[in-house]
């Protein structure tokens, strides 16, 4: 265990790419006039789209007008709703499994530099390979139910969480560890009171990126095989050339994505704002 004081080594900043501040530096509306402008622009964009599509007589099967999409969403919603549920179950289960494994692995592995060096290439392979590619294989082995999808999502989320969390756990600040040690902190206290809070901003970044990757993988897996989920709706509607319904599902998917982003943004604001 690297609990001994790393004597006099300066804190090693080993952040690559995105840092924790990415979580808290998002843009949000501040005042009512800003809100008004944002709403006005949205109306102009959607209205403009509606107008152009109507004026140029773009056929519905190429790009349906926003009003048609809205109508389809309302009409089909009772039919789509269960599929939304299936997708969320897949996403949530896969995300939880992947995130927990990723975080635990990161916490353990960063304590043993050699182990970390050995397994990092494999994690990188897992991060960079689209887990979607494994879905047909997983379906062969596990059938068309939830199992292959949840595994694919967990495989997409886990490595992403792990690699970011590991960056966080590696940020040992020797002065802070010395501080805790000077009060006789145990290894466990050192972890929960120093290492974990120090890693939290990066863990949150990992969870956010991981959950977005998880959503992609979940929908992709549903498109590849099986008779349920929003991804399955997409293939069904497009094969029937029901474009307004198709776009209504896409709208729902972006809504989920934005919801995920906002959730992590708010968590980051509450728990990781000390970073900046």
């Amino acid at each position: 265990m690297s609990d001994a004081i790393p004597e006099f080594r300066k804190a090693e900043a080993t952040e690559v790419g995105i840092t924790g501040s990415a979580l808290t530096s998002g843009v949000g509306a501040r005042t009512w006039s800003e809100v008004a402008i944002i709403v006005a622009v949205a109306i102009v964009v959607i209205g403009g789209l509606e107008f152009v599509l109507w004026w140029r007589e773009v056929p519905d099967y190429i790009f349906p007008r926003p009003s048609l999409i809205a109508a389809a969403l309302v009409k089909e919603f009772p039919l789509i709703l269960p599929h939304l549920g299936y997708t969320l179950v897949t996403l949530f289960a896969g995300f939880t499994i992947g995130a927990v494994i990723g975080m635990v692995l990161a916490a353990v592995v960063t304590q043993y530099p050699l182990v970390e060096k050995v397994i990092t290439p494999y994690i990188l392979v897992l991060v960079t390979t689209p887990m979607l590619a494994l879905v047909p294989l997983l379906i062969l082995r596990f059938g068309f139910g939830y199992t292959p999808r949840i595994i694919a999502v967990a495989l997409a989320v886990g490595p992403m969480v792990m690699i970011n969390a590991a960056t966080g756990f590696r940020r040992t600040d020797s002065a802070k560890i010395a501080l805790a040690r000077s009060y006789g902190a145990t290894t466990l206290q050192m972890f929960w009171k120093i290492r974990a809070p120090m890693a939290l901003p990066m863990i949150l970044v990992g969870l956010m990126i991981g959950s977005i990757f998880g959503l992609l993988t979940a929908v992709g897996a549903e498109m590849v095989g099986g008779g349920f989920g929003l991804g399955n709706r997409l293939t069904t509607y497009s094969s029937m050339i029901n474009m307004p319904e198709f776009f209504a599902v896409i709208l729902l998917l972006s809504f989920i994505g934005i919801l995920i982003y906002i959730t992590f943004f708010l968590i980051g604001k509450k728990w990781a704002s000390w970073q900046t």
Binding site: A175, K176, A178, L179, A180, R181, S182, Y183, G184, A185, Q189, K193, I194, P197, M198, L200, W271, W274, Q275
Partner: peptide, 30 residues
């Protein structure tokens, strides 16, 4: 490390994720 000995570090070395009182109570928590 001994409880009779207190240490003040160069640069305050407060834990940035805790407020001031949280920092002062940190030794007691540990």
């Amino acid at each position: 490390p001994r409880p009779e000995i207190g240490l003040v570090f160069q640069e305050a070395n407060l834990l940035p994720w805790r407020n001031l009182m949280g920092n002062i109570l940190f030794p007691f928590e540990v």
